[in-house]
């Protein structure tokens, strides 16, 4: 039973207007910029200006106003329409290919590990044990710990001289391959708890009868796991996977703090390259094209997610 009064539009209007102004408009503006070469230059101009006295009047010398040379600096933004050039550059840019590779390797290292570890921990702790609520509370801490600060903390943990993991002899941050593994480890530390909490919540929704029925049927624990629990939890796994994929594509803060994208560009994910291109090198048009490249991938994930979720939002 739902109401249909006209006032319903008034309840909705402010938020809709807000999203149009602060999400749809920037996305549109970004798309527009992607077709331009935007250049920011400081133009230095030499001009002649009359010399003024204390009262602001021009000083007259030999019947003429006295002039002086002045150097003016002006920030000039020029944009030139270049059609699809930014997108062409995107697909042939080795830097982009490198950042895509870093992002993909990171996804493959971190996301499956988070899901598997989260599931195992949820199975392990889906029982009445001492201090379970304390454990649940502890698992919330990483999710809400400031990612940038976490990056710096792990920089000190992975520090290769005198750090707490130095005894391993592993070049955690100085070797390109290991540095990316280190970034993935931090992400796994931060997001395994999320997978754990969500899967645990789903596990607790499994009715008791199901365990009992399986036991009466003589199912072993392994059968119980593979034939009952895993199929039952598959929708939850898919949702967690899609959310983690969408979030992991945003990776930025942790490598920013921990490795600065290095050594070289070994841990520079796509988001960081796009950010640098736009706001450090001010190649705004190209950065916008890059953003759209990422957006295209994220849109696929978003659509898969909401297709699964559609019914539950009715």
């Amino acid at each position: 039973m739902r109401w249909t009064g006209r006032i319903r539009f008034l309840f909705l209007a402010p938020a809709v207007a807000w999203v149009l102004a602060f999400t749809i408009f920037p996305l549109g503006y970004s798309l527009y910029l992607a077709f331009f070469k935007v250049e920011q230059k400081v133009e230095i101009k030499r001009v002649q200006q009359p010399v003024l006295d204390e009262r602001g009047q021009p000083v007259i010398e030999d019947g003429q106003p006295k002039m002086r040379n002045v150097v003016l600096r002006e920030n000039v933004t020029t944009s030139t329409f270049i059609g699809l050039d930014n997108f062409r550059r995107l697909v042939s840019d080795p830097q982009v290919a490198d950042a895509v590779r870093v992002t993909l390797v990171f996804l493959l290292l971190a996301v499956p590990a988070e899901l598997v570890l989260g599931f195992l921990l949820a199975l392990l702790f889906n029982r009445q044990i001492m201090g379970r609520s304390v454990l649940r509370a502890i698992m919330i801490l990483p999710i809400f710990a400031t990612p940038l600060a976490v990056g710096y903390v792990f920089f000190t943990i992975f520090y290769e001289v005198g750090g707490p993991l130095a005894w391993t002899g592993i070049p955690w941050l100085s070797h390109p391959g290991w540095a990316l593994v280190s970034v993935a480890i931090v992400d796994i530390w931060q997001w395994t708890p999320f997978c754990f909490l969500v899967i645990l919540a789903a596990l607790q929704g499994v009715p008791d009868d199901l365990y009992e029925a399986a036991q009466i049927d003589g199912a072993s624990n392994w059968d119980m796991l593979t034939k009952v629990l895993v199929p039952l939890l598959t929708p939850t796994f898919v949702i967690v996977l899609l959310i983690r994929l969408a979030e992991a594509l945003k990776l930025f803060d942790i490598p920013f703090a921990m490795t600065g994208g290095g050594p070289g560009t070994a841990t520079q994910p796509y988001s960081m390259l796009a950010f640098r291109t736009g706001l450090r090198f001010f190649d705004l048009g190209y950065a916008s094209a890059m953003a759209y490249g990422l957006l295209a991938v994220v849109m696929v994930v978003i659509m898969l997610f909401f297709r699964r979720m559609r019914e539950s939002y009715g």
């Binding site: 910029l33 959310i243 796009a274 736009g278 953003a291 957006l295 994220v298």
Partner: peptide, 11 residues
């Protein structure tokens, strides 16, 4: 779910 880097330049 939108990546923030997609809107940072226009913002």
């Amino acid at each position: 779910v939108l990546p923030p880097v997609a809107t940072v330049v226009p913002f």
